[in-house]
């Protein structure tokens, strides 16, 4: 019974948990380990889920698991080799080959820019733009006041805008 309730409540958010962990860890193996550990903890603390927000609750556990593993490496990009998984399925097949190439190139640029952000900035951007969490939810997951969420988002966006504008500028000069 409990297992079923757990599965129905938590498993629907497994993709979201993995996506968040993958952006924290920047590689598949660590992300998988983190999410698996997080699910074990989630099961253990399942009765502590008092409100209805199972997704934000799971994000919090994923984040705590990631940090408790001492996984917080340097803030510079790691040497994850370029992989184009997940991009083919996103590519719009109505595009002609040239446009599709350009789209994949843009995705790779954005991915690189995001991965090079310091983790504190990267996670708020991922939670906000990709997972669509509200400021209040992000504050709860990250464990900082809403004002800090807002200032981190602002600074992260400034950096991304600079990096991406510079990148597209360099491209056009080539």
């Amino acid at each position: 019974m409990r297992a079923r309730v757990f599965e129905e409540t938590v498993l629907p958010h497994l993709d979201a948990a993995f996506n968040y962990a993958r952006w924290l860890a920047r590689n598949d193996a660590d992300a998988e380990d983190v999410v698996q550990d997080a699910c074990v903890r989630a099961m253990r603390y399942f009765s502590s889920l008092r409100d209805d927000n199972a997704r934000a609750w799971l994000f919090t556990i994923v984040r705590n698991t990631w940090y408790s593993r001492g996984s917080r490496k340097g803030n510079v990009a790691d040497a994850t080799p370029f992989r184009d998984d997940g991009q083919d399925q996103r590519a719009d097949h109505a595009l002609d080959p040239e446009e599709r190439l350009l789209q994949q190139h843009t995705v790779a640029l954005v991915r690189g820019a995001l991965e090079r952000l310091p983790v504190d900035f990267r996670e708020v951007i991922v939670l906000r733009e990709i997972e669509g969490l509200s400021y209040r939810e992000i504050a709860a997951v990250v464990g900082v006041p809403i004002g800090t969420v807002m200032s981190r988002l602002a600074r992260a966006r400034e950096r991304l805008q600079t990096v991406l504008t510079l990148a597209s500028h360099t491209e056009s000069l080539r």
């Binding site: 497994l14 598949d28 996103r90 954005v110």
Partner: peptide, 20 residues
Amino acid sequence: VRGAPYYSAPHRLQARVLAQ
């Protein structure tokens, strides 16, 4: 940024969590 890759959980992870 919203066009950045979305990493879905691999099937083996889903299976492991279910088994757990």
